[in-house]
Amino acid sequence: MTDSRETPHDAAGQGAWGRPMPARTGEIAVAIALLAVAVFFISQAALLDFGHIGLPGPGFFPFALGVALALAALMILYAMVRSPDEAAPIYVGHRDVLVTVAALAGVAMAFEQADAYLVLGTFMAFVLLLVARTTWWRALLGACLCMALVWFVFRFALGVRLPTGSFWSGLSAWLPPMFPVGLS
């Protein structure tokens, strides 16, 4: 079995699919993103009651923070634009990171729609297969065992009810009554 720690990627995060990005370009991109957040806060806070300087309303604090964030972002931007691009490039787009993020986004989308255990089990198997790079049957076994443990800890011991979604209800309507389904 191969594990991601044994695979000699690198410490800077290049790995498979990793693309180098000049550090300064990345810094400028982050500063612009911060500036965009600041502009969002300023524009939305301007719609709220500002009050006055002695008796601030609900819009005062977010507006002031938006302005402060914009100033900080502009200062970072200024410093980055003026600095020479000498730092080592930063690698983005590592394969394992992209796979994990995509899997997480899938869970967020399907968690309440389908059965939570089914979604989490699929997520587990997917990540084991593609990130831990294990065999499909180990991934499947690992996912099943993990879901059994999750059910025991969260549902049985802690009483946490996870969403069943429409998957099991649809399945139980389709199957004959002798096969009652529904874990959660």
Binding site: D3, R5, E6, V127, L128, A132, T134, C146
Partner: peptide, 10 residues
């Protein structure tokens, strides 16, 4: 292996 820990923690 860290690859096994990741999905469990997530």
């Amino acid at each position: 292996p860290y690859g096994w820990l990741v999905p469990s923690i997530l």
